[in-house]
Write a protein that binds this DNA or RNA. Structure first.
Lengths: 124, 124, 124, 124
DNA sequence: GTGGTCTAGACCACA
DNA sequence: GTGGTCTAGACCACC
């Protein structure tokens, strides 16, 4: 599979898993209805504990990214993109504004930041 | 004093303390040579354990923000401002880039965000 | 394990621990990637508090000797020896020069010292 | 007077005082029978607490460097130079050996250090 | 009064 | 099981 777990990444393992699966879903690499590897398979492939994968899948299900049916496996869910996008945009706007206010104390302006961030390969 | 500990903030208490003291130093509210409140005073004022403050002060000393002399107290160190600003800018760039990556998963572009943030009264 | 805590040693316990682990890493007894005993194991073995070991491990991590991952344990880091050696040499040269200048006031020359230090079993 | 107390020096203040007085005696700057400043004067001049000077003078008396006579003041004692020099040499040897041990951790030999120190203007 | 060290014991997140 | 955080309370050296 396409997932990589790094011990240097400060994020906990389960989060590294969920983040990468979310990326795959959002980018279309994993399409709705697609069956995910079983917990056991995924654990074996990534050489990490089944418990960790279980936790990751549970989180994904709670957040509506996947659906798990006993005995059948886990499948990518069909997501309400508009609602998700709106929520996310509000959340992000809040985060960014907080950071910019903090930055202002160091005499770093929003433009300073936007400029250095642009042209770094971030999708515009 | 000027420090506020919030139970809603997911950061551990000691980090809330260090972050706010760093900000105060960086913004000039706390000038070099200034004596910080003693561990005991600060603990009493914030109503948290002495040990948590001690941990915060120890971290600040390790990072070069303050100097601590047993029997005397802790004092704001003389800091290399350019280096500090540079570090902060790197840190912020990292934070923002992380958020933008998360945003991209929802088809929210950097420009979408910059646009909604601009004209919100944030210093540019 | 190989660590010994001596009550006669004026160094605090946590420093005795870090010094001995640094020695073991530097001498190759502990190789990169090696897992260190857990905080609890080490504490039990040395019959000192968990917290003292935690302090020692935290210091080692701050100085780059080990990496600690919550839930997994602590591991010997891969160290940039050349850089470390260079820094250390500069630092030592400074220390020694300071001592020699102090000694000169007592009419003790550098050669006097070098001579008495040599042949004492110190690695040359 | 010739004493300087530095807050950057990790040695406690009372030790900075005793060390510098010992140096002055050993180097002949302070000759036997010379009267030292009173505790009160010294404290005022160095801008530190009388308690600290009291502690320093007490230590010096215990180690035989000075004699205090109530109502008269403190005077430099008549010292056995050979013994003093021998003590100093032992102390320095101890310091140097400690540094060399630390150095050995980084594969830096005594010769490496002696070589870089020599020819730096240190009296040999 | 100050900070430095060590202790015991709790609760939490993570694997 | 692992480490991370927070707590209360002890003793010490220093000012």
């Amino acid at each position: 599979m396409f997932i990589v777990i790094s011990p240097l990444n400060p994020d906990p393992m389960y989060k590294q898993v969920t983040d990468q699966i979310k990326d795959a879903i959002a980018s279309g690499t994993l399409r709705p209805e697609t069956k995910l590897p079983s917990i056991r398979e995924m654990a074996k492939e990534l050489k990490i504990s089944m418990i960790t994968i279980k936790r990751a899948y549970a989180d994904l299900e709670n957040e509506g990214y996947i659906l798990t049916r006993s005995g059948l496996g886990s499948f990518v869910a069909d997501i309400n993109w508009d609602k998700l996008r709106e929520e996310k945009l509000t959340e992000i706007r809040f985060e960014i504004t907080k950071i910019l206010h903090a930055a202002a104390r160091f005499d770093i302006s929003a433009e300073d930041i936007f400029t250095t961030v642009r042209g770094k390969g971030v999708k515009e």
